[in-house]
């Protein structure tokens, strides 16, 4: 069983660059053909400052901080046992190519079901841009299969 002492565990805030090439690559990987996600001119014509990050990309940026891997390692949960249970995003402002986003992740809950056969790790993350504005809040639930 995961020790509940990890509830409240916080990462040191880490800042990640939003790279234009990475956004283009991501659009290709998910089959996104809307040109605003890969072409600066199309993005500007649609009213964006430059290429915006698609709706789930904040999760990818946050993965760069390694908080998920650091947290499960600290809890003694092997990578091969985890599944992604759920994910949510609350959006406050767009994230664009060229932004620098600072993430801070807190383990907000750990609980189990089925007599401990499944354990759930809830992590809440704030994402702020280079101006200090909160752009997105994320919640990730990871399931450990015992």
């Amino acid at each position: 069983m995961i020790d509940k002492k990890h509830i409240g565990r916080k990462t040191t805030p880490q800042t990640v660059d939003v790279e234009k090439g990475r956004l283009k690559f991501f659009a290709k990987a998910i089959g996104e053909t809307n040109p605003i996600y890969s072409d600066e001119e199309a993005a500007r014509a649609a009213g964006y400052k430059t290429i915006p990050a698609p709706p789930t990309f904040a999760f990818c940026l946050e993965m760069e901080t390694n908080s998920l891997w650091d947290n499960i390692a600290a809890m003694g949960v092997p990578v091969g046992k985890i599944l992604h249970g759920s994910q949510s995003f609350t959006y406050h402002a767009p994230i664009h190519a060229g932004d620098q986003i600072t993430f801070e992740t807190t383990v907000s809950d750990i609980y189990d079901k089925k007599g401990g056969a499944l354990e759930f790790i809830v992590e809440d993350t704030t994402a702020k841009n280079q101006d200090g504005a909160l752009v997105c809040e994320l919640q990730r639930v990871i399931v450990a299969r015992n």
Binding site: A46, G47, G85, S86, Q87, S88, F89, T90, Y91, P94
Partner: peptide, 13 residues
């Protein structure tokens, strides 16, 4: 809808 209209987005796997 344009992405700027999306306020929140959740999925359970």
């Amino acid at each position: 809808v344009p992405q700027t209209a999306v306020r929140s987005f959740t999925a359970r796997f």
